[in-house]
Design a protein around this nucleic acid. Sequence first.
DNA 1: GAATTTACGTCAGCCTTGTTGACATTCCAA
DNA 2: TTGGAATGTCAACAAGGCTGACGTAAATTC
Lengths: 166, 166
Amino acid sequence: MAESATGGETLLFLTDEQLRQGIEAMFFAYRGFTADPDRILDGKDYGRAHHRAVHFIHRSPGTTVSNLLAILGVTKQSLNRVLRRLIEDDLVRSDKGKVDQRERHLFLTPKGQALERELSDAQRARMRAAYRAAGPQAVVGFRQVLEAMMDPEMRRQYNRLREAGP
Amino acid sequence: MAESATGGETLLFLTDEQLRQGIEAMFFAYRGFTADPDRILDGKDYGRAHHRAVHFIHRSPGTTVSNLLAILGVTKQSLNRVLRRLIEDDLVRSDKGKVDQRERHLFLTPKGQALERELSDAQRARMRAAYRAAGPQAVVGFRQVLEAMMDPEMRRQYNRLREAGP
DNA sequence: GAATTTACGTCAGCCTTGTTGACATTCCAA
DNA sequence: TTGGAATGTCAACAAGGCTGACGTAAATTC
């Protein structure tokens, strides 16, 4: 950060110290990243696992269980426990597939959408504040580094979602 | 990303979609971030909690238990379970304080240093690769956004470590 | 010097969320 | 028709959070 006023193409300064600061930044930032949803979920007797499921079902309405398994990277038993609860509580609807009837297609109910909105509003507010504070150029770099940090399989999932999205 | 070739000072483009992509990038990147250490720890019968303790003891040799508690943000019972194990296994040494004898000062033993190195080598390698792929300018932005995302208290901890560090 | 506070350790018990393994059902596809 | 895929579910277990209660030693305060 010291001698790098040449416009961005300074030589790499990847000392162990710099890298370690990046590692710690990830650690502390992730805490902030999850703090607001965690607080909200606490009161409602749900956990992070429910948040993740709700997020990705919102993101890809009609997604199947195996799809979700691939994205979340947990076992089906673990996911199933979460899904069962969400379905019982009428946050998620599970529809038997029409073409392949083994598949279950997952959707948020209005109640589920309400929770999703509450959680993502909080999370987006923090992200928005961070983006504003850091500026547009920083945001581009942020995204580039994060994408480069993913496992290839996760990057595939991530980009697939991006393509489907906007 | 489309109409923003003006050099970095484009107006804010903080659509919900953009923010959500940032959220998902954090999610997937954090998975990558922890993947390598997790794999290593798996074989050794330790977990992420041990990694965190070892990391910050390495970072601040001689730190006290309450210091570590503040950084990690867990209860003393939870931390104690981890520390007890690390001390039993001769990865960490706990010295009674000289000026204040109630405090315990924590240090890595040679064995603990070896584990720390193995873990952080792996984690730094990934970070280094991501930094290289994204470029120096992106790295600056990455760090700026992460820092802005932290809770104020965590940012204090983070900066305190940075000052003490290099 | 006595009382209080601080730093730490520990026991007991609970919860969430991850894991493995085994098994049943349904149903597509070769 | 048969094998394998997609899903659900039961049981059991572990890591790592949490709360609450209690104990001890040392520092600090009155």
